[in-house]
Each structure stands twice: as C-alpha cells, then as structure tokens.
Design a binder for these strands. Structure first.
Lengths: 338, 338
DNA sequence: CTGAAAGCGCTTACAG
DNA sequence: CTGAAAGCGCTTACAG
C-alpha cells in the first residue's frame, strides 16, 4: 500500500503538504492541492489510520463492551450505538462479555491497549479491576443499561432505562386478570438491572397488597438455561406461582422451554411476562406480554454522552422509560391491542 | 498512561531491553527481566498496541463485515468468529452492512484504513469496488456464508453451508404432507445464497414432478419487511400457494406477520418453512419447520482459513451441510420430534 | 504558501 | 546479554 511519501513524490511536494491537503488545512494553494489530490487518486492512497492515531493520540474509535451479543436487546443496542457513532465520525469496536467477568475484563484491557477514545460499558458483574484502571487512567467512560459501583466509577454517567413504572403497570395488569401468586426470575444480583427489577416488582406487589415470598424469587443469570432451571423449580413447588415474570427475554425463552416440556399451557396453567420486547414475542403461542425499552434512543443517548466526554464537554446521566406491551400470555387483556 | 521509556527509566535499563522482556526474547538475564517486570507491574504499564502495530505492520486484528447484525444467524456467526479468533490470539472488529452495499463499502474501507490483518466478509451485493481494491492490495480475505464474483475475487476462499440436500429433504417432507403449490421468498439475486436456495428449491420441485411458476417466486431482501410484502402478494393470488418457504428467518418473521394480520392459520391455510433455525421457532404458533446451519462450525472454519492466509499458509474453501428440522408449521410430521 | 525536522511509542538489526 | 540508533507513517509547530 502506498504511503504518504509516495504521494508526495508523485505530486512533487513534501509530505507536509500532502498531509495538509488530506486534513483540509486552509493554507494550501489551489494548484498544489489539485496535484496532490490527483496523486492520491492515481495511487489509490489511503492514510494509515494506525500512524495517524499514534501521532495524534486519538483513534476516533469507541469501545463497546456488552454483556451478551446473542441477547437481541444487546444486539439492537449495539446496532444503534454503531449508527450514532458513525454519524458523528467514530467507529465502534464491540467486545462481547458473554456475562463473564473475565471476558469482560479481557475486552476492556484489549480496548484500552488499542487506545480507544472512549468506553461504553454495559457491565456484567461487580468488581472489575480493569474498569477501575480505565477510569483511573482518565479514559472517558459511560455506562449503558447497567452500571456498577467501584473505585473511580462513581463519576461515570449512566444512560439507562427505568422500568419501575412499567413494572408497576405490569403488576396492575396481572392483578386485574386475577393473578395473586406472582414469581420472578431475577438477573444476577451483582447487576443493577438485576436488582432493580426485583425491587420494583416487590414494591409494586406491596402496593397491591401482595407479598413476594422467597421461593418465588429465582436466581437467574440473564441466560436461557437459568430461566429454564428456575421455572422448573417454581413448577415443582407445592403451590406453584400462577405467573412467572422473566427479567429478560432469554430467560423468558428458557421458561417457555420448561413450560412446554411439561405440557403445560400459557396462560391457563401458568402466565408468563418478560422484560425486553422482541419481534418474535408477537408470534409465540400465545403472544408474550413484555416490557419494551426504547433501545434505539438508549444507544444514541449513550453515544452522545460519551462523545461529549471524549471531546471535552461535560456529560450527564440519562434515564429513559420503558413501557408495558400487554399481549395474551397473562390472560386475555381487556380490549388492549395484541 | 506510562510509555515504555517510563518503564525503562524505573528499571534502570534501555527501552530495547524492556521491549525484549515484553516480547519474551530469550536473551535477557533473569535478574534484568525481574526488574523490568517489577517496573511494569508498579506502573501498571500496558504496551501501546497502536505503536506496536505501526512498527510491526500487523494489528493482530481481523475485520468481519456481515450483512445484518440484527439477523440472529449473523449474530451467532459473529460470536463464533470472535470466539475462534480470540482463541488464536486475534481480535475482531465487526462492521454491519445492514444489507446496504454503500455501508458495506464504508466498513471495508474503514477496516483497511485500520490495517486489519485479514478480512472476513459475508458480502451483501454484487460489485463492490472496495472489496476488489482490498483483494488487489493483497489483503488476506475469506468469504463466509455468501460470496460474490469480481475482479481479483476469484481466488478468495469461501466457507459456506450447502443447503441443497436439506432443501430437497424439505421438499420431500412437503410433498409427503400433500402440498403441491409451493412458493418461495427469495433473497437478493445478487447474493449467492439468494440464488442458490431458489435454484435448489426449483431443482427439488422438478425432481418431484412439480413446477415453480414465476408468481410463486417472490423477490425479498432478507429483511422482515420484504417477507411480509411478498407473502401478501402470494396470498392475494387467485390460487395462493399452500406453502411458503422463506429463505431466511427474518423474512419468515415478516411472513408470519402477514399471515397473522389476515387471521389465517398455519399450516391449515398456508404452511410455512424457513431457512436458518433460531431458538424461538420452537415456541411460535405452530413451531416452525426450518433448515439449520452449523453456524458455530462455519465461524470457526472461516477464522481458521483466514488466519492461515494471514500467517502465510495456503487456505482452502470449506463447505458444510445444513439439515432439515421438521416441526409442525407444514403439517403434522410423521413421528419426527417437534 | 511550503518544507525540514521533530516526535508519537514501539521493535529490531547492528555493535559491542 | 545489553544499548544506541533507525525507522514504521503520520502531523504539526517552526522557519522562511
């Protein structure tokens, strides 16, 4: 591949001049600029981004570490992040943590080694030494969807969805349909969304005069397998719950697997609801009631906040709202659209 | 962030020695190595990958350009690619083309600018100038899933799945269930998988003495919207088909949307089958008959081939086989598992 | 308006 | 076994 000096030679100028043309520096005579541009085109020259990054100490690249690419929610988030970043002239490099703290650390480290300009993280777990190190090193960082506490992490803006109202709406919906024994498949306690959704659920139940007994809280890990295991435990109870609320769509998938394997019916034998909405929920048997996040807006807001930080402007935390989409998996909704 | 000279100063050696320790060069005295390692740990030093890449002319990074991240097939492919690459000491940077040739070119260009060591592409369309340029520049390249023809592209190894046998199995299955009017939602003609699946379908029909009339071939683009539009056209026909075969899972989603919107039943009013299997197909109403690709193996084989090329070894094309997973969306399968 | 020169942070022959 | 020096491909003050 041709380098800048090849262009300079062909255009009969110095590399400094070529660089100026490439960077739209105003002080280049029109004729010179022409010759340089022709040489660039003739050679098919493209500046080496590696060299440029080394020299300018910026990579125009954002790192995005997500907990699980196979989770449609995160896939969509990643996509909207990439869209927003590209519109602002940045690339994004994705690291998939697979809900594993060690993999998460691996990606944060790798991204830091590549000197990305900023880090967008949906953290998978508590103590992450690399994340604290990144914060300490002054790397611009923004949490998206989830956040964790840790040394140096308290100043990191959080761009997230608040599901409390939607969860209360869900509980109201369930009560209206006559359900009283509600159970929840929680996400990892180390995760804010994991805790928050359980807290909101418990609070909503209390508001409706219901209790959340310990055997109706199942510990999941946001993966399908755990949803299935927890559901099995629920259904083995002497008094099984009459509705299971999975706090993410993958665990809802696992719950469906288990319910189906037992030949039970939704919502007749047990009702089902999920946090996070996905297109297929419309076509399951029955269509699944879910809480939808404004994923696109979330990704855009997170990128905006991060780039503000990267470019030296202050950034603030952002909280968006989720909303209930009632379908038929909890019983026939009263006249609402499917 | 500390640089190599800071480590050298603290350890009382030259930067050359620090570099040797970092790269496991054998000729460093044990005591010196100790001191360097201590300095590295004390400072929390991490080599700047940008500088290293500039100097060594390799980035230990692979570029992966996929047609659509939101398609679960590609998400899974991306994940297996990342897994395989990481195991071999490479990172991967993903570019999502969204089935848009311009975006595809944008990503190929960006990746080339970053001097990735090799390119894994699932091309979205015909003529891509950047891809030819990359090939001409001698960048190691491998096509995965799909491939295109073009200048300099004929030597690029292809790692893909052959669906012909599975499609024939599907047609046999459909015939056995009494279906005779079969229709197909094709992918973009510019795409090899798009053409191939139609060809295989037509050939299989012929083998069973059936014809594929033109109004039973709908042109889709591998996105849900097109699946819906094409299905609408099929259902508006004076003699609608009795089975619709969507050549990817997103178009199957669109087909479901349309069928459902019309209040029709699967498979009673119209049967449905899809290329590419996804977990939710088990829980739709009814569960959807699909052709499953060995996605994990595909990703691994593609990475292996690409890294062979990158490291100067020859690489060969690989073809894996898909298999039919019969469920209930085409009628009650004869004793096969759901 | 343009060029010569320094320097970003590394690695690696070349000496010793 | 270790160091001084060159150089990867850029950008950017500094001169002129």
């Amino acid at each position: 591949m041709p380098a800048i000096k090849d262009v300079a030679r062909r255009a009969g100028v110095s590399v400094a001049t070529v660089s100026r043309v490439l960077n739209d520096h105003p002080s280049v005579r029109a004729g010179t600029r022409e010759r340089v541009l022709t040489a660039v085109a003739d050679l098919g020259y493209r500046p080496n981004a590696v060299a440029r990054s080394l020299r300018t100490a910026q990579t125009r690249t954002l790192g995005l570490v997500i907990s699980d690419v196979l989770n449609p929610f995160f896939t969509e988030l990643a996509r909207s992040v990439e869209d927003a970043a590209r519109a602002l002239g940045y690339s994004v490099v994705i690291g998939n943590a697979d809900e594993r703290p060690d993999l998460q650390d691996h990606h944060v480290r790798t991204l830091m080694d590549r000197r990305i300009d900023g880090l967008l993280i949906s953290p998978t777990d508590g103590g992450s030494p690399m994340m604290s190190a990144a914060a300490r090193a002054g790397t611009p960082m923004v949490f998206v969807d989830r956040w964790i506490e840790g040394e140096g992490l308290d100043r990191v803006p959080v761009v997230r969805t608040d599901g409390r109202t939607a969860i209360r709406d869900l509980v109201a919906h369930l009560c209206a349909l006559g359900h009283r024994r509600l159970a929840i498949i929680a996400g990892p306690a180390a995760t804010t969304t994991g805790r928050e959704r359980v807290d909101a659920f418990r609070a909503a139940l209390r508001a409706f005069g219901l209790a959340l007994s310990d055997d109706h809280i199942g510990q999941g890990d946001f993966q399908a397998g755990s949803g299935r295991r927890v559901t099995a435990r629920f259904l083995d109870l002497p008094h099984p719950p009459d509705v299971v609320f999975a706090t993410d769509n993958l665990m809802a998938l696992g719950a469906m697997d288990e319910i189906r394997a037992r030949g039970l019916r939704v919502p007749g034998d047990v009702a089902l609801a999920a946090f996070d909405d996905i297109p297929w929920f419309l076509h399951t048997d029955p269509p699944i009631t879910a809480i939808a996040q404004p994923t696109g807006a979330l990704g855009h807001a997170a990128v905006r906040a991060l780039i503000d930080l990267v470019e030296g402007r202050p950034a603030e935390s952002v909280t968006l709202s989720a909303r209930l989409v009632a379908r038929r998996s909890c019983g026939e909704p009263e006249g609402s659209t499917p």
